[in-house]
Nucleic acid binder design. Sequence first.
RNA 1: GCCGAAGUGGCGGAACUGGCAUACGCGUCGGUCUCAAAAACCGAUGAUCGUAAGGUCAUGUGGGUUCAAGUCCCACCUUCGGCACCA
Length: 818
Amino acid sequence: MEQAYPFTEIEKKWQAYWLEQGLFEPDIKDTKNKYYCLMMFPYPSAALHVGHGRNYIIGDVVVRYKKMRGFNVLTPMGFDAFGLPAENAAIKGGLHPRTSTLRNIATMKRQLDAWGVCYAWSRQVISCLPEYYKWTQWIFLKLYEKGLAYRKKAFVNWCPSCQTVLANEQVVQGGCERCDTPVTQKDLEQWFFKITDYADRLLQDLAKLEHWPERVKTMQSNWIGKSEGVNINFKIADSDKCLTCFTTRVDTIFGANYMVLAPEHPLINELIKDMPDKAGILSFVKSVRDESRIKRSDENVDKKGIFTGRYVINPVNNRKIPLWIANYVLMEYGTGAVMAVPSHDQRDFEFARKYGLPVTVVIDDPKFPLDAELMKEAYVRDGIMVNSGEFNGLSNRVAMEKIALFMEEKGIGKRSVHFKLRDWLISRQRYWGAPIPMIYCDRCGIVPVPEKDLPVLLPETVEFKPTGESPLKSVGSFADTVCPVCNGKARREFDTMDTFVDSSWYFLRYISPRLDQKAFEKADVDRWLPVDQYIGGVEHAILHLLYSRFITKVLYDLKLIGFDEPFHNLFTQGMIIKDGAKMSKSKGNVVSPDDLIEEYGADTVRLYTLFIGPPEKDAEWSDRGVEGAYRFLRRVWRLAESPAEAKGPVNGQGPESVTPLMRKMHQTIKKVTDDLDGGFHFNTAISAIMELVNEIYAAMSRDDAGDIAPAVKTTVLLLSPFVPHLAEEMWQKLGHSPSILKEPWPAYDRRFILDETVTLPVQVNGKLRLTVTVTPAIGEEELKKTVLADEKIRKWLENKTLQKWIIIPHRLVNLIVK
RNA sequence: GCCGAAGUGGCGGAACUGGCAUACGCGUCGGUCUCAAAAACCGAUGAUCGUAAGGUCAUGUGGGUUCAAGUCCCACCUUCGGCACCA
């Protein structure tokens, strides 16, 4: 197909030029006007599609705009190259993960170049290379020193397909984040990062993140899941031991008619050891524990339980209440023991009805008094305390405070806070990751690899197919080592680290990517961070974005960096949808940028991607829309091909002699500038430029050619962040020297913005009946006269009385008539 | 169930602080050019009644506030996203 303008040639030419001139390689020591713009780095598991492109194109527009505004912009790029996606892809292709990863990186780089998106490539980081993961291991050691990396046996999420454990954050709707396989539970000894120590700060500091999307903050706050309540000790009858439970509804304590333990509760064996039905209880416990997590946590699943034969004492009224075990109590949350208040908790209510346990109302509905016998569901709203001894008659909200205080005084309970957030499980039984730098010595126990011995290299030749155990176990040369403390025989940790560890600090490494003595230079990092603008997909709201905040806070506490939040502004772009679904290879609806760029050019693909809709929202890809963008660029291109029109002098110096085209030009500069400064309103910015171009053509046909040249020049400048190749070429054709990136962003003159005449809508009783064209400066009396002179308006006033004028200057006129 | 986002022409979407709803683009229809087609260019395009002038109705639904509501308030419906037996 013949090209409407020589985009292939132009695009290649300018891409080479930008690279040669090093236009995107900032001086890191010069931090005056610094602007750190970061795009989430990609997984090199496959080629990029136009949906990925949105992320990079948005970033590139921001970068180019900021450069023209005079900022010293840092925009680095790298590859999140370790991890399951890369490894699974490699296995499928029968290649070593390193080979396929590096190959994919080359493909992606070519694609990024072809889009015309530019980066400080000299700062590239690739997380699977030893020069990078050495420092990932170093960060692990720092956490270990601080007691924030630890090993424990626990029930962990296991993906049977990926054959590895997963962090809580990587279990989505009961399935594996990567492959959707239902996740099971395993009791394993694993490495964890103690993110729970930071739960409160991670929650509190969300308030500092003023420029983050509300939805991301809400998701993080839900995920952290703070609840405040009281830990209450229940004495076990015929024993001197206590069971502690956590409740957020201490006001309902007088209605606690039984207590329930999670089947995993560690005290169960001891409690039931002399019970006649010991075998039955144990078999119940086993049957629940064998159930998959998803099945058990389904709300619709029937509540099942069994009486232990034991009793505990309700500490506020000394009543002996039965102790049960039930499937609806979770060991992971709170204390694994729950005081059950059937009257005021729906789950307890259902359970009590099923097993015939007593229901006692302790908070009454002030409007419709409750009857425990007749209740169909638990009463969970506020009310008045009853059956609660000295607290009767109080509002339950007041009682909540008083009972908590009472318990603390008596030493039977203590206010406490619980979080849903679990510690971050970071070990993986897979090959393609950074080895955990720890050593097991028979004599000395767990010993960290000394810093000087880093990196612990990942062996090359390994049978890396997933088996459920780390493939590194079978590599003798890796596994066998000596203890750094006693020099005795020892073995290395076989597991590798979760990829999310790699990506939770990469934004620091960009500042000094080749430094081999340190992970980063504190002074430089402190000058360039926090990141001014971070751009990426919302799917990382509670994974990468939470982990990065955590690691940043840890490094801050260790005084290794001087800031405790990594990302100042966050923008999360929407997905690009094709045929009603997210683009994916398995669905076969992937739109590749390669063909499109060949057919229409990168500028067309960029422009359409930006024009498709508000960038934070999902958008449906349309091939027709691409053609529309192409048509527009062709129209723009022709403006540089009509030199006669483009050479006229600038008309008029003052606002009084300004032509409509000049006025439109200044209005467009304002509109585009406001759209870029006020948010990422690329779609409306582009439509404004389209209007300007339409106006230029209209002016050309009117033959008032004098103003065409400045309007075309402005159009090119305004378009340059969006379609940089076309803009550079036209810039040169118009007789300017490259690069347009060095040109200041156009300014508008306020005086030229106000229209010479305004068209005011005239309403009668709020309905539009007429528009009048007047000068903006018109006085009220004269305006009234003009309106009343109109025949149509007079018709509407016939036989009626004009009661009131509403005149909003520059806006409208409304006549109230009866 | 809880939290969040959203609902506007045939389609993607505009609309600042309550002030001409449907900008811009796509599609469709008509025209110019052409032997013809494509491309390009010009024009029309919410629905409805009317020959016309013009009228009436339209921003998920129902109410309300206001001279004036896509925008504010109340109640609801639908879609999408997140969390979910969290005590």
